[in-house]
């Protein structure tokens, strides 16, 4: 009971402690104790802001998703760099309304972050009703293709992982 109250988010506490030790770059008694103190204090102070975190249902799929996003960031970056470096061809920007099928705040946040990280698309606004996401696309002539690609590449895996 006491442990539950002092450590409301044990995994977060552990991560905070590890990050602190990594930041100080050496494992000494001092850094471990300081990390443990931060791991206890920060979750207690920020507890009110945390929503319930969904459980990862398929960890392997999450790993594959992460790798895919990394590769996409690399490829799409080169594509956008090439697009900018050619001043004679104007990009065709577009606002696209993306209909969300994800329900939980956490997975929507992950999807919006992924969209912003893969260059060429930026998630501009999550509508108040949480049903659609406004995306600004740097260069497209087919909005439906953008929506389909995001759905197949990112949203469906996220749904399988978390919902």
């Amino acid at each position: 009971m006491l442990i539950k109250r002092c450590l409301p988010r044990p995994i977060l506490s552990l991560i905070l402690m590890l990050v602190w030790i990594m930041l100080s770059d050496v494992i000494t008694y001092g850094s471990v104790i300081m990390g443990a103190l931060l791991g206890i204090a920060i979750p207690l102070m920020t507890q009110r802001f945390w929503d319930a975190q969904p459980v990862v249902k398929k960890p392997l799929l999450l790993l594959r998703y992460t790798l895919r996003v990394m590769v996409d960031i690399l490829l799409a970056n080169l594509e956008v760099a090439w697009l900018i470096a050619r001043p004679w061809r104007r990009p065709r920007p577009a606002f696209v309304e993306y209909p969300l099928t994800l329900k939980r705040d956490f997975s929507i946040t992950l999807l919006a972050s992924t969209i912003s990280l893969t260059p060429g698309t930026i998630s501009a606004n999550l509508r108040l009703d949480g049903r659609s996401l406004l995306i600004h696309v740097l260069d497209t002539d087919d909005e439906q293709a953008v929506i389909d690609e995001i759905y197949n590449r990112y949203e469906r895996p996220l749904m399988e992982i978390y919902e």
Partner: peptide, 10 residues
Amino acid sequence: MHGPAKATTL
């Protein structure tokens, strides 16, 4: 906005 998003990742 697309520029900084790229610079910070790749």
